[in-house]
Amino acid sequence: MSAIGLNHFLALGAVLFCLGTYGVLTRRNAIAVLLSLELMFNAVNLNLVAFARFMPNLDGVVLAVFVIAVAAAEATVGVALVLSIYRNFRHIDLDQVDTMKG
């Protein structure tokens, strides 16, 4: 087993980001989409912390702290919107939440 370098962490971050993208594209349930979005934000954080350690530059960790705070706010908003969708449609399947046509 070779030594673990920066590229290993970056590859894992890329895999996590793509899994999140896959989830956003395929999930039809609104909360499942939110879960996948959190995966994407985590992939970014993994990248940032890996850079911070290997550079080394503390700013990467500072950036990651901000990303966590923004993700928390984003999740709050997402849950509020899910509840609003649920109250109006009585379900949260996004492919049926498509009433407007141009």
Binding site: I31, A72, A75, V79
Partner: peptide, 16 residues
Amino acid sequence: YAGAIAIMLLFAIMLT
């Protein structure tokens, strides 16, 4: 993350 955000999402699952 694991403590607050994920639990909030789990609550949302249970509510809906």
